[in-house]
Design a protein around this nucleic acid. Structure first.
Lengths: 354, 354
DNA sequence: TTGTATGCGTTATCAT
DNA sequence: ATGATAACGCATACAA
């Protein structure tokens, strides 16, 4: 048997079609319907399991409750925090406003397919708006999205906000937290700083470190995961003069470095100080207190939704704090460009603090 | 300016509305339109950025490309693999068939809200089908979902398939992999087996362990995360006679146990053997080779989508292998109930194998 | 207090 | 080869 529709309910309740609509949309009292009628309708709906068809409602209202979240595909665990935290916080924020979040993965390779993916998406699911992780994509691939009239929020989880046209553009001031961290360390005593990173181009977060130290060594591991950090650090420590400060470009590399040092009986933080980027946090009673710089992805997800749905009050109050607003160079007057602050969490386990 | 619609294109191309539809749906050749007309239409569409309205299409076709994935909310990192692997594998499978996956989080507390969440969802977004993690929910809360005519696949990521009515019901034979693991260990020499678990009821995976050993000790940590495993194991090892086998109910607890043993200079696997459940895997050159039982969540996500979209061939070929099919006790003749095999990965690093 | 008419944008059928 | 039109289910303005 097919899904019940309005006329099934109307027939069963012995009322007209519009009466069903009015009652189901909670306007019974407002329009002065009898309690008796309302009850009859609700009972009939309940009995046949009637729920108004979303497709018909979306069509009729010319509106949708689905927010598209376009994310770069995940090459390895490095991106899991991006996926998890962005998606979950976006869902949380959206749910609060009775919206849904539809994640759409964009291939990192085969970029020529992206325009077509976007066209197919727009054609198959009505979107209330789009949140787009720009990544390293050529903005031109999003042309169709821009041409459609839905609001767009651009995201750059690994750097400054782009200046693409849309309702908002969010970035992260990665250097800020790193700078804070460096201020807490007596850096004048540092002789051999090391920057431990993964494959690919150096991220923004390196900048304050590079600025602080005239000379530093770069160790590039062959992945962004813990074992690579372990191996690279192991080789580094075995090979000659010990470093006295390691900045790991992500937390997983730092965990590898920590373990390698322990295995080689190099004490941290006494012999080597260590900190990383990513906001590693253990709930409950922690085993490891890693000094790390928070990556405000959760804030980013919340703000993206808030901006998309134009809940300006939300930005200002809960999530806005610490954001660096940049309004110049934007075409739309409604647009907001801002970089979320990253925050240092220095901890005595891995840093000797001044 | 508003999003372009069909009539904008028709006007620009100088043709009728239906001609635009015909061309846009690739039926130009079939209906014998001139190449000239088709080109004009395509160019006009391109120029104004026309994409057919999804809401109107969904309405007209009485169909949708969105699969709802109803998941229990995530209380702590324990559930991250469930969320990640299920969602990502479902997205992967769905994308291949040109479908989308909409994750919907159901509150674990405040369960009385669930029926309303489901009703709102059905009312606001047209679903092609639903994949539902049953969890510990009373199946009655899903009544509206069942009454709607969309196909449903039930999931139990932590135990056997339920026998709810729907297109399919998938579970996991957790005991299978644990049993395999126990067969590889010379268990007659085990004197003091310990089961290390987290808060809450004991999962299915314990069963073969309990069956194998007449007497075993249960250590219940106060969370499912690594630090809790560390603390509980630390206390256990300090407190008297050492165990000789620890089965950790998840990988994170096992990692804590491993670290605790190392810190107390108890050798693994020589003094204590250790294995866990969850399929912990490090890509690249691994630092830790944990003996663990695979949790086939990825397979589950793929199969759920395949079953939902009735791609029977898919089950049989790629993902079906090793699944234990149970067809008795099902009402719907289309329904399939099966338990995916879990697989042991014994590794010499943490187990002494026979 | 209830019923009726209209339109939302698209597609497919049918007529030209 | 191209154009006109009905139908999809719902919500609402308006008529009764």
């Amino acid at each position: 048997m097919a899904r019940a529709n309005r006329s099934d309910v109307a027939k069963l309740a012995g009322v007209s079609l519009s009466t069903v609509s009015h009652v189901m949309n909670g306007r019974a009292a407002e329009l002065g319907f009898s309690e008796e009628t309302a009850r009859k309708v609700r009972e009939a709906a309940e009995q046949v399991g009637y729920v108004p068809r979303a497709a018909a409602r979306a069509f009729r209202y010319q509106a949708s409750k689905v927010i598209g979240l376009f994310l770069g595909e995940i090459p390895e665990s490095l991106h899991l925090p991006v996926f998890n935290e962005l998606l979950l916080s976006a869902i949380e924020a959206a749910t609060e406003m009775h919206y849904f979040v539809l994640p759409i993965l964009l291939p990192l390779t085969r970029r020529e397919e992206i325009p077509d993916i976007i066209r197919k998406t727009l054609q198959e699911v009505e979107l209330a708006g789009a949140i787009v992780e720009v990544g390293s994509h050529d903005p031109a691939v999003f042309k169709l999205l821009v041409q459609s009239d839905i609001p767009i929020v651009w995201l750059n989880p690994g750097g400054p906000a782009s200046d693409l046209p849309g309702r908002a553009s969010l970035g992260i001031a990665e250097g800020e937290g790193v700078g804070q961290m460096l201020e807490r360390i007596p850096t004048e005593q540092i002789k051999r700083p090391v920057y431990l990173t993964g494959p690919g181009p150096f991220p923004e977060r390196l900048r304050p470190f590079a600025k602080k130290f005239a000379k530093y060594q770069v160790v590039q591991a062959d992945s962004w995961l813990t074992p690579a950090g372990y191996n690279s650090t192991g080789r580094l420590l075995a090979d000659g003069e010990l470093p006295d400060l390691i900045f790991a470009a992500n937390d997983l590399l730092a965990l590898g470095a920590l373990t390698a040092a322990r295995d080689l009986e190099v004490t941290i933080p006494h012999t080597i100080q260590l900190f990383s980027y990513g906001g590693f946090e253990q709930t409950g009673s922690p085993m490891i207190q890693l000094s790390t710089v928070d990556w405000p992805l959760e804030q980013m997800g919340h703000m993206a939704v808030a901006a998309l749905l134009q809940e300006r009050s939300d930005w200002d109050q809960k999530w806005f704090a610490g954001a660096e607003v940049v309004t110049d160079g934007l075409s739309s007057q409604n647009a907001l460009r801002l970089n979320l602050a990253s925050v240092a969490h220095p901890r005595g386990t891995t840093l000797r603090l001044s």
